[in-house]
Structure formats: structure tokens, C-alpha cells
Design a protein around this nucleic acid. Structure first.
Length: 311
RNA sequence: CGCAGGGUAGAGCAGUCUGGUAGCUCGUCGGGCUCAUAACCCGGAGGACGUGGGUUCAAAUCCCACCCCUGCAA
């Protein structure tokens, strides 16, 4: 079976690796073109491109997959099936019509919930206690296609976007391999349509999504820290120009009778912040232009005292 | 050639503008106090101030080059 793989980010890697490990015939890898990025405007390969080249696979990087030129390339490649994971562009119907066995996508949520670009992040931000992966047939909509199978898992209090992405990527890779192994010949696998009435949307995060509002309950701020861990990070300000990312924290049940955002320091090493409801203990923090550090180092180096405030 | 901050003791930072004995909060080691401590008191060890060159009587500090780290932006 001739498989064309499409993916871009880290999330797609375990699936690509699994396909290689199970000796599927991968006729090519499609990933987004790399663009000048990072400090100094450097150009870095997408994770999928780097991995694809490592396996000596042919890598395609069309500017837009819907452009006629790429569709033509695709026809010549004549894949039996297209496997998609975190690719980053919507696929046009003209493209979906090409592979006889269809186009399957791995999505890190329990569809129809959390359709869109940032399902894992929003799942955490909203404080969900369970999530999962969905393997589905791609249609022209955004994550609206028929569901082939799903697998749910519990979300732990220590889970962040980083750990969940890793867990779901591996879980999904296994599922996908099983589906490919059980494929009927020359037609798409069986699937059932989504209950569109229950759909929710998880749009790409913006930088502003990471801005901490200390009026919120400690648990919600904690969820924000977990959900924005990959990007943009949950941030606040110590002064007008000192921006800080809260990297790790823990909600505490006790209540401080001071305005939200006020710091309470115990024994020069425990950093508590008053919130709208409950208290947030900050464990790891990163001041702008500095490396990640423990709360204790932050307190010592920045000479913090009870009564200082996060803005 | 995107914008910016940084590299000083094991950690986090000040000192650099205005050159003149290496500092702060911790940690660590030793001692003391206490029923007790992540508490408190006393004392000690621990630094080629990122690297190389230059200016100077004198450089962490001023000048030049390079290496490394990070935030923003994408």
C-alpha cells in the first residue's frame, strides 16, 4: 500500500516513526515549507522534514497544497492512502479525491469536541479531566470528517501541553498503525459521522491568551499555565518592563486576605500568590531574557518580599 | 544582516554610566542557641568577573573582535 505522509510539527513524529518501524511503504513526506524564524531570522527545517530526511524519504514542501502544481505532483505519486498528522493546512476536495483508500487524520481530541488547531491546549485551559485521540477520514471541513476510531485517556493534574502532546502522539501513532493493518483493500476504512451538534472549536492560541489574570481562581490560572506550556506560556509582570513566565505552579486551598496578585513569601523559598480564589504556589519561573529558575532562586536573586505584586 | 537583554563564588543577582581592596540574598562547611526548626546568632571556605587583544600607573568597569545563553518578534 502506497502511503503519502503529511505532517509538520513534533506531534506528527511518532506517527511517522511508527509507519517506518512497521515497514509501510512511504512514498513521500509532505510538510510545510520552512520560513525564516527564530532568533536571528534563521531557517530551520520542520520536525517532520528533519525526520523524513533521516529516513531518506522524499520530502515535498508545497507553499499551498491546493495549488494546481502540487495536485499534479500528487496525481503522479498515486498514493493509495494519505496519512495526516498536524500538517497545518486545510486539504482541498480535489486532493482528497485522489487516494482510493481515502485520507486519514490523527486529531488529539475526542471529536467533535475541540476541532481546530490547538485542541490539546484548550482541553487543558478548560480544565478537562479526560481527552483522547481521534482517527478520522478527512473531508473538506476543519476536523469535521467521519470518525474511524477513538481512544480516551485521563488527564492528570501534572499533565501539561508538553506531556499530553507526547502521550497523545504516541497513542495516536499506535491506533493509526492498527487501522492501516486492518484496512479493507481499495476502499476507505469504515467510519461514522460526527455529532455536529456537540462540536466545539479550539482555535490557535494568541500571545494574549497567555496573559495571567490574577482575579481568576488559582485552579484556572494553573490550567492556563498547563495549557499554554508549549506556546505562548502563561505570563505576568513584576514591574512595567519585567515580564515573567510562570512555568510550573500548584494551586493551594488556603486563602490570603490580600488583593489578587500580591506575593506572600515564606522562609525565603516559598512563593505564594494571592488570586481571585485560593492561592497559587509558583514553583518554576522565567524572567524575560533569563533562564528558567526555581522560585527560591527567583526570590533570592530579585530580593522579593511579601507585599510585592504581580501585575 | 528582524528587535532587545545577559555571561561576576555551587544558585539567583548587584556593582559597569562616573576605572582605584570583589558585594547582596541563599546554599555549603564549622560552631552556638533552642523542647524544636526550611527558625535565629557567630565564624569559615569557595571568584582566571565568558574568551582574546587594546587603552591606562591602574580595567569586572573604557575601546575592538569573537564565543555562548535568553526574551520578544516571526
Amino acid at each position: 500500500m502506497r502511503i503519502l505522509f503529511m505532517g509538520t510539527s513534533e506531534f506528527a513524529i511518532p506517527t511517522l516513526q511508527a509507519l517506518v518501524a512497521h515497514k509501510f511503504e512511504i512514498i513521500g513526506v509532505v510538510t510545510q515549507p520552512e520560513r525564516p524564524s527564530g532568533r536571528g531570522k534563521r531557517v530551520t527545517p520542520t520536525p517532520v522534514k528533519a525526520e523524513g530526511l533521516r529516513y531518506n524519504l522524499t520530502v515535498y514542501q508545497p507553499e499551498k497544497v491546493r495549488h494546481a502544481r502540487f495536485l499534479k505532483t500528487l496525481e503522479q505519486l498515486a498514493p493509495d492512502i494519505i496519512v495526516v498528522a498536524a500538517f497545518g493546512q486545510l486539504l482541498p476536495q480535489a486532493m482528497l479525491d485522489i487516494p482510493p483508500c481515502g485520507t486519514v487524520n490523527l486529531h488529539p481530541s475526542l471529536l467533535p469536541k475541540y476541532r481546530g488547531a490547538a485542541p490539546i491546549q484548550w482541553t487543558l485551559i478548560n480544565g478537562e479531566t479526560e481527552t483522547g485521540v481521534t482517527v478520522m477520514l478527512v473531508d473538506a471541513g476543519e476536523d469535521t470528517g467521519d470518525i474511524i476510531c477513538q481512544e480516551r485517556i485521563d488527564i492528570g493534574l501534572k499533565d501539561t501541553a508538553v506531556t499530553l502532546t507526547d502521550t497523545l502522539a504516541h497513542l495516536g501513532a499506535k491506533r493509526l498503525v492498527r487501522i492501516l493493518n486492518e484496512m479493507p483493500p481499495n476502499r476507505p476504512p469504515a467510519a461514522v459521522s460526527q455529532n455536529h451538534a456537540h462540536a466545539t472549536h479550539a482555535p490557535r492560541l494568541t500571545k494574549e491568551n497567555g496573559h495571567i489574570n490574577w482575579q481568576q481562581p488559582a485552579t484556572e490560572i494553573h490550567n492556563l499555565v498547563r495549557g499554554t506550556a508549549i506556546w505562548p506560556g502563561a505570563y505576568t509582570f513584576l514591574s512595567q518592563n519585567l515580564r515573567l513566565k510562570i512555568l510550573q505552579c500548584l494551586p493551594q486551598p488556603r486563602t490570603l486576605t490580600v488583593p489578587p496578585g500580591t506575593l506572600h513569601i515564606e522562609n525565603r523559598q516559598t512563593l505564594l500568590v494571592a488570586t481571585g480564589e485560593g492561592t497559587l504556589q509558583v514553583l518554576k519561573i522565567q524572567p524575560a531574557t533569563k533562564k528558567e529558575m526555581d522560585a527560591r532562586d527567583f526570590i533570592n536573586g530579585y530580593q522579593l518580599r511579601t507585599g510585592n505584586r504581580f501585575l
